[in-house]
Structures are given as structure tokens and as C-alpha cells.
Amino acid sequence: MKSFSYNRSVLSLVFTFLGGAALLFIIAPIAGMYLNITPESLRESAYSQEVRDSIWLSLWTSMAGTFLFSFLAVPLAYLLARKNFALKGIVNGIIDIPIIIPHSAAGIAVLGIITRDSLLGSAGELFGIKFIGSPAGIILAMAFVSIPFLINAARDGFAAVPERLEKVALTLGASPARVFFTVSLPLAWRSILSGFILMWARGMSEFGAVIIVAYNPKTAPILIYERFTSYGLKYSLPAAVVFVTVCLLIFIVLRLIKRKS
């Protein structure tokens, strides 16, 4: 018994060490950014109109994409959680494709459906919506690479709602639509909110797909990249730190809200 607990304590010591190294690997580069920057350059960057515009563009396009596509993602997630159909496994796999393909390739794929010759592109033109080089295109590119996060989280959330509660609601005279809005959705809400945050955060930080669809107007990741390639690390770092700070603040606030709810 003694040797067992001795082994266990050695094991947890080793795991603590390894786990700590992993954690350090995440923290160290970000902490390094903050340590390598002077307050003046940071202030200058934070007050720069170009930096502010790019961060605001990243925030609102990603939020808009998340919001718009949630009307499609949530119903799909519900179907995947509740219904059994042929090729369900393949559908689940398809959903993860945007995560596994290179994001520049994802950008090229999105570009394909929004050019003037494409159905969506020509339809957009009809209504005066331009996709390439515009916020609408950015929204699509961001949503393409980040929608799996919302679908997967919402699907897991719906799957965790006991089907029995939905059935009981039906026996109490509620219509399927009422059951969805008064039972399934409120009970899966936490997971959906999680997915919402993840999709937003992921879309906001997207670089590869967005740069192919719209180099301009510049989202924050593209602005950071442009400054890095044109002027070097010293000039790109402050913009990067400002953007990372905004992301972290939003992330912390949303996590707090989620914990409270």
C-alpha cells in the first residue's frame, strides 16, 4: 500500500512538472510580448486610428458572422443531437472540415463562392452587396473557419438535454416549436453560449482565410502582419499587444458572464 501511494506521488510530481511546462509554453510568449514593449509605443498604438479601426472591424465582423450563422448552426446542431438519419457520421465529419484544412485554402474556397461568376456573388451584386474586399466577405471568411465551434458546442448541449423532458412537454400539450424554445434551448443555453464565444473569438483572430478574401479593409490580424512584413517586429508588436489585450479582456468578461448564468 505504501509503495502504491509512493508511486502515485512520484507520478503526480512528474505530471505536475510536465503540465507546468505546457502551461508555461502558453503563458511565456504572451508574457514576453508585454515585457518587450515600452509604454510609449503601446500608448501610441492604442491611440492610432488605423489600429483602432482594424480592431473594431475584427470585432464587429466576427460578431455579425457569429450572430447571422447561429440561425443556421443552432437548428443543425439540434437535428444532429436529436435525429438519426443516414450518413449522420459523414455530416458530423463535414462540419469539422473547416478546422482541418489550411486556412489559406479555406479562404480560396470561400473566394470561389463569392466571385462575380458565382451564384452568391452575382446574387449579392443584384442587391448591391459586394463580397470581395468588403466586410461582407470578411464575415463569410471568418464564419467559414469558425462555425464548427458553434455547431459542435450546441450539438453537445442539446444532446445533454434529457429527451424525456421534451417528451413530457409534448404530453402537456406544447407544440414541438414551443418545446424547442421553452425546454431544449434554455437547457442547452450554456453550451450554445460557449460555442458562440468560441466562434466569435476564433473568427476575430482569423488571418489566412480573411487575407485572401479581403486584404482591405484591414482586420487587426492583417494589419499586424502588414506592419511586420513592412516595418519589422518593433513596429508590429505594439499593435499586436493592443489586439491581444482586447481579445483577453473580452474573453475574461464573457467567461465571467457564462459562469454567472
Binding site: 434529457p162 424525456r164 423532458l165 417528451k167 413530457v168 409534448l170 404530453t171 402537456l172 400539450g173 406544447a174 407544440s175 414541438p176
Partner: peptide, 14 residues
């Protein structure tokens, strides 16, 4: 189901 007017009560999970 919603038009049957039959109630169902389970053990402890409804």
C-alpha cells in the same frame, strides 16, 4: 402526442 390529452409522470426526472 400534444393532442392526446394523456399525462405521463416518471419516477423522478420529468
Amino acid at each position: 402526442i400534444q393532442n392526446r390529452n394523456i399525462s405521463i409522470v416518471y419516477q423522478d426526472t420529468d
